[in-house]
Amino acid sequence: MDVTRRNLFQILGAAPAVAAAQSQAEHAHPAPPAASAPAAYKRKIFDEHEWRTVHVLCDLIIPADEHSGSATSAGVPEFIDDWLDFRKHEDGDGNLAAGIQGGLAWLDQESTRLFQKDFAVAAPAQQTQILDRIAWPARASAADRRWASFFTRFRDLTVSGFFSSKTGVADLPYLGNKALSEWKGCDPKVWAVIEERMKNGYKSLAGEVKPWTD
């Protein structure tokens, strides 16, 4: 059961401390800076041209839908630029950044070869024509395999950047990070769905799951 901070005070002996910590956590930081003011972000890795390509690519991977906004609206380009810089320092080399920048360069080279335009300004159908070759690693041709690896890495950065943002957390949704007065365990509504799947089988994202046997 969720509790408001006011009745939390009545429930827990040391509630003022819990409430204070929660209140501090809520108010210590305003909104994530990247999401609220992308203009204020100072790039560390990407140049102006790469920056435009990254924006286009992020939103091709995670566009806005009826649940939430797009990757760029959630500050994902800023997250990726900052992440690549972070890895550079942590790993002691810039190999991850180089691989991403190399992949972005290839998108332009391929787009220019096919359509005489940089990837970011190519028509949507032209962009997807290239992405369809590299977005499913198992289907990629031998020649495209390394670009499929690049795209997998870029997609993972976009996905984790998006779903760990404030926007993404609300989209999933993640419902925790709050004080509860009582822990009840697995929600019966959730367990009912699981039991139904165990009994009758389930058509999952990864294919057909057979009914469970004991």
């Binding site: 991977i61 499913w136 984790s160 779903f163 993640y174």
Partner: peptide, 30 residues
């Protein structure tokens, strides 16, 4: 359903095979 952080939902291609766009966003959410 842990608090999302760096690395959340990475490696989705191992389940979905790959993809991008609205259908991908829907599936990775699931």
């Amino acid at each position: 359903r842990n608090m999302p952080g760096a690395g959340t939902l990475g490696g989705s291609h191992r389940v979905l095979g790959g993809g991008y766009g609205k259908a991908f966003k829907r599936d990775v959410r699931k």
